[in-house]
Write a protein that binds this DNA or RNA. Structure first.
Length: 396
DNA sequence: ATACATACC
DNA sequence: TACTGGTATGTAT
């Protein structure tokens, strides 16, 4: 597969395949996928774009045919050599497996759309999307029920949902909100890695080591009335509380999570525990109080898994994958390859390389390739390496 | 070293 | 009418 060098693959999955894979997305329950695909096809037909996509798809098919021909000529000996290589790589990866870090992936829910809805309550119960007639950046959950989603041209979205409201992008606004949430991220990991305006990877490992001995006051956060501008200074002042001053063992209240102090007026503050889940819940709480926007998070021993996890309980939820081999393997079993398909092949050959084998789940890939160590791909490995370098220079 | 291709949001 | 644009990495020559 790797040696098939023709540069004929489509951009990403390709338009047509993408539609066929229009599954498994939040907000897609109870919607008629066939009908949606039909409308998309009819809207696309005859356009230059569509012709191009067809051409690319054809090229990919030819490439696959070629690969299948090559496959017929593979000898027993070659197979054995390849097998041995795979086993070797597998055992190397197995040895280098590191489950000691706690990585969190945070992703704002329908970010651009959520910002626009926050600032214009009229949009609240309407299907809306952010972008233009040519291209949408994202859509709110209401619009997703009609099959309207990110990276879809606006005019097609209008056909799927005639009442759709399309709001133009306000990047400056999104940038300033992004800065607000990044300030919170920095409290948990000063070296956090932003992916885009609304998404970042955080290494919680160190925060958790310190947090275990934090007093309750440092883990208490105030509900915002969303009217007083000073609410953010409030929480920052608390965060600035030095944990080093409280090195005695965690107090008895430490294990009691989710306790709330009540006022005459009701809840005004919330106390968070010292566990990962509590720390992440706290971070999401602070984001919501500060920006009126919700975020979802995934907690796992590496970036790739964290990313997949953050999708699991979206919107406004979080999911933690335990840090042991068994849990990870279990999690991987029935995961659609689509979510992590970069695991097997070179990054930019991934889709056209895995696709012809028609494998849906990771388990299927593992069986076919007798390959059991599949949860850190080159792309993420690169970024994780980057992070370690950054950390080294920080310590020096 | 450069141009071109691909990926991600 | 209309199928992104900014930024990164990877590959070929």
């Amino acid at each position: 597969v790797r040696s098939t060098k023709q540069q004929t693959s489509t951009k990403g999955e390709g338009y047509l395949s993408r539609m066929a894979l229009n599954d498994n997305k939040a907000g897609m329950e109870g919607l008629d996928r066939d009908k949606i695909n039909k409308i998309i096809m009819e809207s696309s037909k005859g356009s230059k774009f569509y012709e191009n996509e067809l051409k690319k798809e054809h090229q990919v098919n030819q490439r696959i045919e070629k690969m299948m021909l090559q496959k017929a000529h593979i000898t027993e000996q070659q197979l054995k050599t390849a097998q041995a290589q795979v086993e070797m790589t597998a055992s190397e990866l197995e040895k280098s497996r590191d489950l000691s870090r706690v990585i969190v992936h945070v992703d704002m829910d329908a970010f651009y759309a959520a910002v626009e809805m926050r600032d214009c309550p009229d949009l609240k119960d309407k299907p809306m999307a952010v972008g233009s007639m040519s291209m949408l950046s994202t859509s709110n959950y209401h619009a997703r029920k009609y099959g309207v989603r990110a990276a879809m041209p606006g005019f097609i979205a209008k056909k799927l949902c005639p009442h759709l409201v399309i709001v133009p992008c306000n990047f400056d606004k999104y940038k300033s909100v992004s800065n607000e949430i990044r300030e919170i991220f920095a409290d948990y990991d000063p070296q956090f890695q932003p992916v885009s305006l609304d998404e970042a990877y955080l290494d919680f490992t160190e925060h958790l080591e310190l947090r275990i001995s934090w007093p309750e006051a440092s883990r208490t956060h105030r509900y915002s009335s969303w009217k007083q501008p000073e609410h953010q200074q409030e929480s920052e002042a608390k965060e600035g509380f030095s944990p080093v001053l409280f090195e005695d063992s965690p107090s008895s209240s430490q294990s009691l999570s989710n306790s709330q102090t009540a006022d005459a007026t009701g809840k005004t503050t919330e106390v968070f525990g010292t566990s990962v889940e509590e720390a992440v819940r706290e971070m999401r709480f602070r984001i919501e109080q500060k920006t009126m926007l919700t975020a979802s998070a995934g907690i796992a021993p590496n970036m790739m898994l964290a990313k997949v996890c953050s999708d699991k309980n979206k919107p406004n939820g979080q999911y933690r994958l335990a840090s042991n081999r068994e849990a990870v393997m279990d999690f991987i079993q029935n995961l659609p390859v689509r979510k992590v398909y970069c695991i097997l092949v070179q990054k930019n050959h991934k889709w056209s390389s895995v696709h012809p084998f028609k494998m849906r789940t990771c388990n299927c890939v593992a069986t076919r390739f007798r390959f059991s160590v599949l949860f850190l791909c080159a792309g993420f490995r690169h970024r994780e390496g980057e992070r370690k370098d950054a950390e080294c220079s920080r310590h020096q």
